[in-house]
Write a protein that binds this DNA or RNA. Sequence first.
DNA 1: TAAAATACTAGACTGTGGTCTAATATTAAT
DNA 2: ATTAATATTAGACCACAGTCTAGTATTTTA
Lengths: 213, 213
Amino acid sequence: MNKRENKQLRGVITREKILTKALELFKKRGYNKVTVDEIILASETSKGSFYQHFPSKASIFLYQFSKADEYYTEISKNIPNDLSELTKIEYFSLEVLDFLDKDMGKELMRVIYSSAIESNEHTFFINANRPLFKIIRTYIEKAFSNNEIKNGYSLDEVYTTLIQGIMGIIYHWGINNNITSLKQVGQPLLSAIIIGFKTPSNIITSTEEKPSY
Amino acid sequence: MNKRENKQLRGVITREKILTKALELFKKRGYNKVTVDEIILASETSKGSFYQHFPSKASIFLYQFSKADEYYTEISKNIPNDLSELTKIEYFSLEVLDFLDKDMGKELMRVIYSSAIESNEHTFFINANRPLFKIIRTYIEKAFSNNEIKNGYSLDEVYTTLIQGIMGIIYHWGINNNITSLKQVGQPLLSAIIIGFKTPSNIITSTEEKPSY
DNA sequence: TAAAATACTAGACTGTGGTCTAATATTAAT
DNA sequence: ATTAATATTAGACCACAGTCTAGTATTTTA
């Protein structure tokens, strides 16, 4: 190993020590109970090192979320091909929910959802999800090609509707303390939305029967 | 005025001074930019007084939300009676969104949604909304009586689905920086959900065609 | 190999929301 | 009217995430 690697190595090792210890502590005592000072004490490093390697306490916790994209791609590959595109969307979304529940966990999801809304630096949330967004968008495009969407919505409307639905499912599950699985609580909304897309709406109904709004 | 009123008065006046000045500052410079020290300076009070009258900085901002319930009841009274119950739900929900957008504003909604998910003290969010929840539940019950719900969902499923949808709409709007109105971005999801409720689902489809999940 | 540039580390310091305690004002009890 | 109980106020203090600066180690340039 040459000098260059050695040099990077010092940092990499420190970073790794911090990351490991931090995640260990978060797991043991919960994210909110663990302080940065504790992490640097346990990992025998310093404030300076901590913030050299991580931009915030949250980022180190959120780091776990980076495997998500990888997994989404995996899920999408394993979807039976004989399903309609809309059914694929439902199937895929439910698998995503299952993954978030079982592999990521409620506490992490809460931290993700709260940091996304409490600051304008939700770049991560929006960007890191790109693969998720792209996968969904691709399905929608195909659904349009196959004429599966019959309620007159545009691609963007369908897309936004789905994202709103998924976010609503996760947010609602996040603030509730019951132990029902995310997949289970999310299934009805997803189904209803998909059915909504499939069902031709009476144009007269939506423009004349309810003219007041 | 007797002694008792006088005594309460001192506190009430202080409380009012803090509240007024705080909301004024929040409005002028934004919630996050205003510090508690600034508020007590501007209102000529003290830390002790501030926390005597308010449990947190957020609570003083969230205070504005207390008129919400009142307004929800008002909306529900003014809904045309010749609409179907499901249409009423859609109408009502859209009016709620309109109110939250125009009267409450995005910053307040973000603070509400972030404090609800970042601590377990979201009692307020859940409880203060009771009237909203009750109104929606009542509509749903009537919709069931009128046989408007044809997709086989239980009352709780319909209820949860709607709440998830509404929360999703608000959350999604909250993290996005575009200026589209909440009502406008929420309309498609609400419509799709309602259509989903109305549309009989093929029972065989949901239990046999997709047995793998 | 000397000098310059860069990465890394340590820990003092800051900003800010929130707590605690002691003092004072007000009300209630006797 | 005295005393006890309670509400209110002031501001020192604490906790904790995050910043800043000075110093050290490593790498690159020449």
